[in-house]
Amino acid sequence: MKKRRVTSTDVARKAGVSQSAVSRTFSPWPTQSGVSAEIREKVLRAAKELGYQPNAIARSLITQRSRIVGVLFSYLDNPFYARALELLCHGLQARGYHALVFMMSDTLQDIDSTVSDILQYQVDGLLTASVELSSKLCIECTERGIPVVMFNRTQDDPGLSAVTTDNIGGGRLAAKALLDAGCERLAVLAGWEGASTSRDREFGFRAELHARGAELFERANGNFNLEDTAQATRAFFKDRDPAERPDALFVINDYMAIRAMDVIRNELGLRIPEDVSVVGFDDISTAAQPTYGLTTVRQPINRMVEASLRLLFEQIEDSAAQPEHVMLGAQLVERHSVRRKSSP
């Protein structure tokens, strides 16, 4: 025979308190529940003896809050996004919320379909990372009163909040580092064409070259994919005379930069930085390992996550809160993958 589920009424009866006292004891905000320490202790003791667990679904029906946030990623191969997901989940849990994580491809059609599925779970908000949203979907979220915060992406939509690094400024830092080192034939290994991060970083890189009277020597796409990155790197350097190949490479993120460095050294037998200097973007942990010593542009990931959660909860708690774009400064981290300029 199936055992009957223990209810908050059972706990209240055993503890000798009201049912509302039980509900307030198990509130996600115990410090604001108005329950004395003595009553709280009675309720918790009774709940433990009876094997009671609060019903989150029932609570959501009363509060009209699911305490669930949808989190969208297109891929986690890049350690930057794996770390971001970890920090976002910890941050949500610390506030009494839980993440409903969905993975999807980069195509807008698949993204729209997945988000429509997420909205059926009555999420209180949406955090997106490494994906772009269609205007139609943004309007749907706005009409439903569901705040959306984009992490490490931007879109031309005033109804969306976004948190990014200054990607244009970071691209300029990368170009400056290579030009200051005396590099002359600078190439870009870009990511997926639809990503605002790749677009803005390349724009900043080109802008700095133009400001210094230099031109981009060559360009290819790695599409945030390791095999595409390897093929593009081979096309840059394989079987080409030194004067006809790049002597510097700006890779749009570290994930691709590490793969490019492996191809340059291990497959093609070239030296870094003597034959080619390399700069990445993100500052993932692998970049700092002695094997790579990758000079890169650092994204302040902890501050980006904190800002994303702040914007999200401001809008969850206050429907009148306005969307905001937070842009944090980029920082060049110099290691050993860029050659030192020769003394005159």
Rank of each mutant, 00 (worst) to 15 (best):
Q331G: 02
G16N: 02
Q299S: 02
E86W: 12
A248G: 13
F237V: 00
K3N: 09
V22E: 15
T128W: 15
E227N: 05
R4F: 08
V43S: 14
F26Q: 12
F73E: 03
S285A: 00
Q32H: 11
H90P: 06
R67N: 04
A230Y: 14
R245G: 12
C183P: 00
P290L: 06
D106G: 01
D318E: 15
G91C: 07
V22A: 11
G269P: 14
E132Q: 13
R185S: 08
G125Q: 04
R340P: 13
P273S: 02
R245A: 11
A37S: 10
A181P: 09
Q122A: 03
I264E: 15
E202P: 00
S308E: 04
S198H: 15
V131P: 10
F313Q: 01
F237Y: 06
T31V: 11
S196D: 00
A58S: 04
G222E: 04
L126T: 03
D318N: 04
G16L: 06
D282S: 08
S105K: 08
R144I: 07
M261F: 12
Q299D: 02
D124R: 12
R234T: 09
S66Q: 09
S60G: 14
E184L: 08
A287T: 03
D112E: 02
R4H: 11
P28R: 15
A214E: 02
F281N: 05
T142C: 14
D110Q: 09
S60A: 14
V69M: 12
K48L: 00
M304R: 08
Y255T: 09
A56G: 02
Y97D: 07
L127C: 11
A99L: 11
F281L: 03
S277C: 13
A175Q: 11
S135T: 05
A211S: 15
S18W: 13
T7M: 11
L85H: 07
L92Q: 05
A21F: 10
A21R: 09
